[in-house]
Computed example of a mutant assay.
Amino acid sequence: MAGIADWWAGNGHEDQRIKWAVTIQHENHGDLTITWFPNSPVERFKIVLALPPAIWRIDYDPNDRHPNPLSTIPALPRGIILGSHFHAWEDNRHLMKGNMPPPRLRFARPLPADISGLHACLRWFCQHVNIALDGTTVPPPPSADRLL
């Protein structure tokens, strides 16, 4: 992942997005997208790696509630996860049907408490999915476009 990308209006003008192509051995295989919610009263964003479909995601929102389904994987937290969390491929790949990845990443874990803010989350995310950020520039996120 390299280069400079620009923010653009997402769905319903409530979010702004930025996207980079993800290349493996000089071939495009998917994308990494950051979705920013500029009018949120708290810092709120998503980071998604899709090959497609999505195989890894961070939902950064201190007010979020994610219901984890019951699982036979003992290491996964059960019940409601409060606050920011991540959906790792390793926790969701058992949902594959044959060669088809799952349409949704249903299982999540809380984001480590020492990871906060967009740039720290992006570095942590890329480290976990083996994406090199060398030469990548992330422009400042857009400001709110209306009064809260």
Rank of each mutant, 00 (worst) to 15 (best):
R106E: 09
D61E: 04
P139D: 08
I115W: 00
N99C: 05
W8F: 14
V138L: 15
L76N: 02
G83I: 00
D114E: 14
R65G: 03
S143H: 12
L82T: 14
H94R: 12
A5S: 15
F86K: 01
N130H: 15
A9P: 05
H94P: 04
E43R: 02
P74K: 13
L95N: 11
N39G: 10
G79W: 05
G83S: 08
H29I: 15
R146N: 14
F125H: 01
P77I: 10
A21V: 05
N130I: 07
L122V: 04
D59P: 00
G12Q: 07
K97D: 15
M1D: 08
P77T: 05
R93S: 14
G12R: 11
M96R: 15
R57A: 09
P52G: 13
V48L: 07
P103E: 12
F45N: 00
N68M: 08
W56F: 12
L32N: 02
D145M: 02
A50Q: 12
K46N: 11
L95C: 14
N39V: 04
L148V: 09
K46G: 02
A132C: 12
D6E: 07
R146Y: 15
A5I: 02
N11H: 10
P112C: 02
P142Q: 08
A5C: 09
I81M: 04
P139Q: 10
V138I: 14
D64H: 12
D145T: 11
D145Y: 10
P101S: 10
P67W: 06
L111W: 00
C121I: 01
H13G: 09
L111N: 00
I73F: 07
D31R: 04
N39Y: 12
P103V: 09
G98I: 06
N92F: 04
N39E: 06
I58W: 00
P142M: 04
A75G: 05
P142S: 10
I24K: 10
P69D: 05
I47S: 00
N39L: 10
T72P: 00
Q25I: 09
G30V: 07
G83T: 00
L122N: 00
P140S: 13
V48T: 15
L82D: 12
D91F: 03
I81R: 01
D6N: 10
W20Y: 12
N11M: 11
N92E: 07
C121Y: 01
L148G: 06
W20V: 01
L32Q: 03
A75F: 03
S40W: 01
T23G: 04
C126V: 10
H13R: 14
A120L: 08
S71K: 07
N63L: 14
L148E: 14
G12I: 05
G30T: 11
H128R: 15
H128T: 06
L95R: 15
I80Y: 11
I80D: 13
R65A: 09
N11V: 07
P102R: 09
R146V: 09
I115R: 03
P74L: 08
Y60P: 00
P41I: 05
G30Q: 13
A144Y: 03
T33R: 12
I81T: 05
R123D: 15
W7Q: 07
A120P: 00
P101T: 11
G135P: 08
N28L: 11
P74S: 13
G98F: 14
K46A: 03
A108C: 13
A2F: 14
P62Y: 03
L32P: 00
